[in-house]
């Protein structure tokens, strides 16, 4: 099988805007699913509501496109009722961290055996560019027209603290690293959380200094720093420059997990 066979050919091209990073994350996820050798028949994709949550609709496996924020609760039911199924959840920053925040921390705590891929575009894409819990301080959106005054969530730190077995962050520029991280997530029993920063040229980029699609990708390329490196810098008392994206593995561990296939 190839990644192309995981796609619902009859639904392409998809609804994402030109240059939207969501399509790239779908590629990386399908590549990882392909590499681990899962069968379509045994694999279920679940999502909430948002542009990112449209992803399962383009994948030719069983898929449940649910209500805003609740994907993890639906996925928990699927996985517990039939642990033989491989469950992957696609979600967005608003879906996961705002309306779905409580389900997120509890799914991490339960360490339920599913893999969550969050397409964090730091904005509410689908509804036209409102601020989200990951909109950076100062970030412009339709509901933060003077710049966001709230601190943003660090989703990976949150997932780590709440108990997930595997936590990693990459961006839509880092296709290889992202694919490898998702693959590790699929392989790890328990809750795996992979955050991918993605460009939303239409509703984030345009308002926040990224005129071209490629501008934000260039930014991702030049503004990432490995978690380990940032850690070493801090140990030495050096400062990690502001605005850098910490990427790589945050956590890889083996806490007791729920819903693992026997």
């Amino acid at each position: 099988m190839s990644e192309e066979e995981w796609l619902r050919q009859d639904r392409l091209p998809h609804i994402f805007c030109a240059g939207c990073g969501n399509g790239t994350v779908i590629n990386c996820t399908l590549s990882a699913v392909e590499q681990i050798g899962w069968k379509k028949q045994d694999t279920v994709f679940v999502s909430g509501i948002g542009c990112s949550s449209r992803a399962p609709g383009y994948i030719a496996a069983d898929s449940l496109h649910t209500t805003h924020g609740r994907a993890l609760a639906f996925a928990t039911g699927i996985k517990l009722a039939n642990p033989a199924l491989n469950v992957v959840v696609f979600t967005g920053d608003g879906d996961l961290a705002a309306i779905g925040g409580n389900h997120f921390i509890h799914a991490c705590r339960r360490n339920i055996d599913i893999t969550v891929v969050c397409m964090n575009n730091m904005i509410y894409g689908m509804t036209g560019g409102q601020g989200s819990p990951t909109t950076p301080a100062g970030g412009l959106s339709t509901t933060t027209p003077y710049g966001s005054e709230e601190p943003a969530f660090d989703l990976c730190v949150l997932a780590s603290a709440a108990g997930a077995n595997y936590v990693a962050r990459w961006t839509s520029y880092h296709v290889r690293e992202l694919t490898r991280a998702i693959l590790t997530g699929l392989e790890t029993p328990g809750f795996s959380f992979i955050e991918s920063l993605v460009q939303c040229p239409t509703n984030y980029g345009r308002r926040n200094r990224f005129k071209q699609v490629t501008d934000q990708i260039e930014y991702f390329r030049s503004h990432t720093i490995l978690v380990e490196k940032a850690g070493r810098m801090k140990e030495k008392g050096e400062e990690v420059p502001a605005g850098m994206i910490l990427s790589g593995e945050f956590v890889r561990r083996n806490r007791p997990a729920l819903g693992v296939r026997q």
């Binding site: 192309e4 796609l7 240059g19 939207c20 399509g23 790239t24 590629n27 839509s172 520029y173 290889r176």
Partner: peptide
């Protein structure tokens, strides 16, 4: 395969 992977629209083959 980097181009194929990053292409958000599955257009490269």
């Amino acid at each position: 395969g980097t181009c194929q992977m990053i292409c958000p629209d599955q257009a490269i083959s």
